[in-house]
Nucleic acid binder design. Structure first.
Length: 563
RNA sequence: CGGAGCGUAGCGUAGCCCGGUAUCGCGCCAGUUUUGGGAACUGGAGGCCGCAGGUUCGAAUCCUGCCGUUCCGACCA
């Protein structure tokens, strides 16, 4: 490609609206252009990279036996009402105003409806169906460029099986395909176990690109054997030991004590584990809201995903007015004693049967001490509800946990029969009995994968492409197109690269100073720069610069091709 | 959805408090000189100052409403 024929609107300065590096660089290198909040157009340079990523995915999906589809982005609202997701998604789904249609945020329903009418015998399975398509989600707050956008490209794949064993096989095959894909994309990634309750599936894993701008937190053990999304991570920690002093609980005055830290100071203790933290959650149900009080150690945080895993996704923290109504106190003075029996009380496993605890008295500015959960809180249940912390031991005590931020680039999970049952997608088994098709669901964000790569591979000059997703392998920089010799040599190299089918970009711009060309080349990050200028040409040489290392080699002009 | 900020030429901005017809840099066009790390000079083009209403002789500037956008938080199959 000749640069004079290529639309590459590079920017010298950082756009004021971009904050994260990948966003800045994608705008500056002319890959994307924002049209409105969370919506971006792909420009030629960006599209080249997205296509490279897509083709790697296509390659691996096909190798795994996938069939490529291209489904409609529009679908009837009714289809989503049937599976209940119209309500589940709510405002996150774009709805067409002048026709009863929605823009699909994902395609389980549409694929299922195709399967329903065509896969009717156990002999029709297994199948892997996929597509690479625009998805639409009305994100409340798009951010970080294409990392969270309202329209984005996703590869979504679905395994369709007649048996649960078949699902396991498909899932493993897709997991391997995903590892291949992200490896070929040159991405540093970690596979973590993930929260799946929200989508109604069982096993679930996420492919995470570690990055400081990631919105997810992942937990990895130092020996690398354990990795998990923080939402579901577990660790080993000693339980709070019983003291068996059997002291009666008693109220004491704690003026203006709102937080655990203030309470610890007030009672002059450094050990916050016995200062039980109480939080009230609401399980929103059509037949009426249920309230629950959740207790964790004072130095722990409640893991809301784990709560959702136990009680469903419609769990939310109670509002301040609700707290007062239910407990008679504001946040900071709430505790497990003396509540209405309708309120379920659950505590973290670390507090199982613990005694001599201090917690709120359900009366503002008062706490209770010497609470014995075993004695004083009949009907209490214990579950793993805490968020693990950096430095804790793995549950087998063999290693320690580290927490890092990461970007979710892929997600695979065993979906099961939720949608096939809702839409009546059934097949006849060998005994002639009807069964719902068993689904797996597997997604990859194309732009997000690309942006994650850039987050991991750039410097203060620009992007550093490598491997299969590099849009060009080499850029020829002709330093002076008005010098006939330089021009002719450059043209010669360009033709030679084309002949050898090597992706090459030729900066053949005249009237552009060398400094501009060097900076543009560094910005757009082509791995190898072939620099042709007067200085070296006098000696019959040209220069090769490796973008990543900045390493320069002066070579005979005839030998340059073997870079 | 809560909090904060911003909207002036393609991009980045000054002016706004204190009202008088818009500043500077980059980029762009023409010409001359230049050509190894974002050139110099000369001349030029380009603006419903986000939108609507109000106050005023007069509004980019003051007031009201709206819209857009960014960030933090909340939320996120």
């Amino acid at each position: 490609m000749r640069l004079t024929q290529f639309f590459l609107p590079t920017l010298k300065d950082d756009p004021v609206d971009a904050v994260v590096d990948s966003h800045k660089l994608m705008l500056r290198s002319g890959m994307i252009k924002q049209i409105t909040s969370g919506v971006y157009s792909s420009l030629p340079f960006g599209l080249m990279v997205f296509r490279k990523v897509e083709n790697i995915i296509r390659d691996e999906m096909n190798a795994a036996g996938g069939n490529e589809f291209y489904l409609s982005a529009l679908s009837p609202t009714e289809l989503w009402a049937e599976t209940g997701r119209l309500e589940d998604y709510g405002d996150l789904m774009f709805r067409i105003k002048n026709r009863d249609l929605v823009l699909c945020p994902t395609h389980e329903e549409v694929f299922t409806s195709i399967a329903k009418s065509n896969l009717i015998s156990y002999k029709d399975f297994p199948k892997i169906w996929y597509q690479i398509q625009s998805k639409f989600r009305n994100e409340e707050r798009p951010r970080a460029g294409v990392l969270r956008a309202r329209q984005f490209t996703m590869k979504d794949a679905y395994s369709l099986d007649a048996t649960w064993e078949g699902l396991d096989i498909a899932y493993e095959r897709m997991a391997q395909a995903y590892r291949n894909i992200f490896t070929r994309c040159g991405l540093e990634f970690v596979v973590v176990s993930a929260f799946s309750g929200a989508m109604g599936g069982s096993a679930s894993q996420e492919f995470m690109a570690p990055s400081s701008v990631g919105e997810d937190n992942i937990v990895i053990s130092e020996d690398g054997k354990y990795s998990s999304n923080l939402e579901v991570a577990v660790s080993f920690k000693e339980k709070v030991q019983r003291k068996n002093t059997d002291l009666k609980y008693e109220e004491f005055h704690t003026p203006n004590i709102k937080t655990i830290d203030e309470l610890a100071e007030f009672v002059k203790t450094k050990d916050k584990t016995r200062l039980a933290k109480s939080r009230v959650f609401v399980n929103v149900k059509p037949e009426g809201n249920e309230f629950m009080l959740v207790l964790v150690c004072g130095d722990d945080e409640v893991n809301e995903s784990k709560l959702q895993g136990f009680f469903g996704i419609n769990i939310r923290p109670a509002h301040n007015e609700e707290l007062m109504e239910i407990t008679g106190a504001d946040a900071g003075s709430i505790g497990p004693i003396g509540l209405d029996k309708k309120i379920k009380i659950i505590a973290d496993l670390l507090l199982e049967d613990a005694d001599e605890l201090i917690s709120g008295a359900n009366k503002n500015d008062y706490h209770l001490k010497n609470i014995d959960l075993k004695r004083d809180v009949p009907g209490i249940e214990y579950k793993d509800l805490r968020t693990v912390k950096e430095g804790e031991q793995t549950s087998d005590k063999s290693s320690k946990l580290k927490i890092t931020k990461a970007i979710e680039v892929g997600h695979i999970f065993k979906l099961g029969t939720k949608y096939s049952e809702a839409l009546g997608a059934k097949f006849l088994d060998a005994e002639g009995k009807e069964n719902p098709i068993i689904f797996g669901s597997y997604g990859i964000g194309i732009e997000r994968t690309t942006a994650s790569f850039i987050e991991q591979s750039h410097d203060d000059k620009g992007i550093i492409w490598k491997g299969e997703i590099a849009p060009f392998k080499v850029i020829i920089i002709s330093l002076n197109q008005s010098n006939e010799e330089i021009k002719n040599i450059s043209e010669g190299f360009y033709k030679e690269f084309l002949n050898r089918k090597i992706d090459v970009l030729f900066d053949d711009r005249a009237d552009v100073r060398p400094g501009v060309k060097f900076n543009d080349a560094d910005l757009i990050g082509i791995p190898v720069q072939l620099i042709i200028g007067e200085k070296n040409l006098k000696e019959g040489n040209v220069e090769i610069k490796i973008r990543k290392t900045g390493e320069r080699m002066i070579v005979r002009k005839g030998e340059a091709i073997e870079y």
